[in-house]
Amino acid sequence: MKQIVITKHGDPDVLEIKERKDPQPSAGEVLIKVKAIGVNFADILARKGLYPDAPKPPCVVGYEVSGTVETAGPGVDSSILGSAVIALTRFNGYADRVCVSEKAVFRIPDPLDFERAAAIPVNYLTAYQLLHVMGGLKKGESVLIHNAGGGVGLAALDISLHLEATTYGTSSVGKHRFLMQRGLNYPIDYRNQDFLSSIMSLTGGKGVEVVLDPIGGRHWKKSYRALRSTGRLGMFGVSTVTDSTMGRLFQFIKLIAQTPRYSPLELMNANKSVFGVNLGHMWNERDKIGGWMQEILKGVEEGWVRPHVDRAFPLERAGEAHAYIEARKNIGKVVLVTGG
């Protein structure tokens, strides 16, 4: 099989394609012949040495794949052989063959091709946990989605519209037309507008019920201020850590120094709440993840889950895919394809 290996921490050129022996599924596992692989910001952080959960180089990252089941291990119902599936992987996803637990495998609904199927798991599960499970977004409420043009951003927009919420989203102005065509009510140009002032102006000084913030640091402070009473701030990333040119240690020190501390008394008096989401730490909750995934796949069939793939890069050009995302060129998902 072929894998993309992070040979050392650094720029995209540290990603190299390697030939490895095909894996064999253990009991309760299946071997998937991979067709498409979702690329996530966590993969970029891992490559840069800024993702604590990632294995040390040389390593293979990747959290989600789509493809066909080629082999079933002991204890797995053989009727799954040949099925088109989506799978969650705990690393090792940047490959044309991967073994995963059958509990992390879901059949692809008929409307989806492999590329769009690979765009679902991480983005939509993260957005579902943020909005439905922990954010409690309801009909008639309002939500501010930072980085609305990204993969999680578009997934959050789909879910928010399904819940009949009013949507605000930050992005570069070049993405506004697309986002409004997708249903975003109020786009905000984060490069030329202060998002907090814009939100307060648009909401008559009230703020919004839910804010989704993947940026981190002092940005969380402003997002908290954008909440109205009973508002909830969902934090699910620290993309600001990649903006610095300092070394890794100094990047983390700067991030910690800028991160707000929320006092229980302050939260009580403000009638606000804050929470965090890290899908990569949900592997011990497979029953919950499975239930959420079934709701999302039902949404595909009903038409309100609409995964959007911006670009597909061949597996061997994974470095270009990383650079494309880091340049903030993508609207929605970037995937790798194996050609197999």
Rank of each mutant, 00 (worst) to 15 (best):
M235T: 05
I120N: 02
G332E: 06
R228H: 08
F41E: 04
Y128P: 05
V76W: 01
P121A: 09
P57W: 07
Y324D: 03
P264N: 08
S197N: 13
A36K: 04
A257F: 15
E320K: 12
H9S: 02
P111E: 08
P57Q: 05
V5Y: 09
H322I: 09
A72L: 08
V305S: 02
G174T: 10
E141L: 00
A312C: 11
S26G: 11
V85H: 02
I215C: 06
S83M: 11
V105M: 04
L112R: 05
Y186C: 05
H162L: 04
V277L: 10
K103D: 15
K298A: 11
V335L: 10
Q24Y: 12
S79M: 15
G319K: 08
K272L: 08
Y324S: 00
P58M: 11
L297H: 01
F91A: 13
N147P: 06
I4S: 03
G136V: 03
E70M: 08
F236A: 00
R97P: 04
L81T: 08
P264Y: 12
G339S: 09
V39Y: 00
V334G: 05
W304E: 04
A84H: 09
K2H: 14
F250M: 14
L233H: 03
I86N: 07
V274Q: 06
W292H: 15
